[in-house]
Simulated scan of single mutants.
Amino acid sequence: MSVDVRVAVQSGHALGEGVLWCDRTQSLLWTDIHASMLWRYVPGDGTVRSWPMPERLASFALCVADGWLLLALASRLAFFHFGTGEIREIRTLPIAPETRANDGACDRQGRFVFGTLHEPAHGPKGAHGQFLRLDADLTLHELPLPRVAIANSVAFSPDGGTMYFCDSLQKRILQCEYGDEVGAVSTFVDLTSLEGGEPDGSTVDSEGGVWNAQWGASRVVRYRADGREDRVVAMPTSQPTRPAFGGPSLATLYVTSAHDGMTDAARSIDRHAGDVFAFEPGITGLREPRFAGDPDAVRRR
């Protein structure tokens, strides 16, 4: 698919991730995980702002409560208020040693689903990560899904009845029936033949297509709801991380990227690694779901 991919923000992040669009403020939000920074870009006036976080911010969700964001920090969940900068801790995460929070998204029912990532001090990553869900009453549950080394690609079908997810190292995007319970897991897309690349973050469009950023493969790919490859968009960087629809009509696809793990020689060639990109795919997205939990409930507990 030939589209005009442009640099929206020259950010140069080590690990840009977690991107989503806020329809209330008409702004793009994302994180540079390794820098422990939350970023915001307002296309209407071109302003860019950032907020330091108390530890690495892996992913987040918009909230029904105005002005609040739900944070999946490396070791804990918390609420963040844009106006005051207040952080209200919800709880620490019951996760394995040498793991941290990673990719996550709010489901259509207003709950936050996220996975964890294994980052050992020595040796290879192992399947020690898990998928968790924070409900509106702020209770946390582990979902009965396969253990993973790098949890990614958390996204939901337009009707909320299917959850997509993956272990990036296994190179398969999986799916399951989703609701109060999760159903049997099956393969949505098999990418084991993709040399030098692996699935990273995903988003779903208004037609039910799944857009996946493929780390190391310099591309974003759209899959139809039946898993068939539909469109391939070449990206001007080797490590795209996550897409998100944005803009007034949700007609622009924004994509974060990273230079994490690149040598100086590789970065001299990949000059836009870590920037935020944008293009118009010809399909619109869906309004980002909001977490239904109440930040004031933290104080009442």
Rank of each mutant, 00 (worst) to 15 (best):
S257F: 03
G67H: 08
L117V: 12
S59V: 03
M1S: 13
V204G: 02
T237L: 04
F245Q: 05
L140M: 11
L28C: 02
L132D: 08
F112C: 00
G161N: 14
T256L: 01
R172L: 10
I33G: 01
D167T: 07
A72R: 00
A244R: 09
C22L: 04
L73V: 02
T92E: 14
P146N: 04
P236K: 03
L174D: 06
S268Q: 12
R76N: 06
W21Y: 04
T31S: 13
P52G: 07
P124R: 04
L140F: 08
R267Q: 09
G197S: 04
V154I: 02
M37C: 15
Q109D: 12
G161Y: 12
I173P: 10
R88C: 03
S50R: 10
L140A: 06
M1I: 09
N152I: 03
V64K: 12
S2R: 15
D180V: 15
L70W: 08
C176Q: 02
F114Q: 04
A105W: 12
H122S: 11
L71A: 04
G85L: 10
G67C: 03
D296E: 15
R108P: 03
I95K: 07
A72C: 09
Y223M: 05
C63T: 09
G216Y: 14
W21M: 07
T25F: 08
S238L: 13
P243H: 05
V42M: 10
L73C: 02
R147Y: 12
Q239E: 12
Q10C: 15
D200L: 01
A151V: 09
G18L: 01
G261W: 06
D264K: 10
E181F: 10
R56L: 07
D32K: 02
G16W: 02
A217K: 05
F79P: 03
V189E: 00
G293I: 10
E177T: 14
T25K: 13
D167I: 07
V255I: 04
E119T: 15
W68I: 04
R6P: 11
Q130A: 12
T263H: 07
D270F: 05
R172Q: 13
T241K: 00
A58R: 06
Q130N: 14
G261K: 00
T162D: 05
R267P: 03
N212Y: 08
P52I: 07
H34W: 14
L194I: 10
D159N: 06
C166Q: 03
Q130D: 15
M163T: 11
L29F: 05
F79C: 05
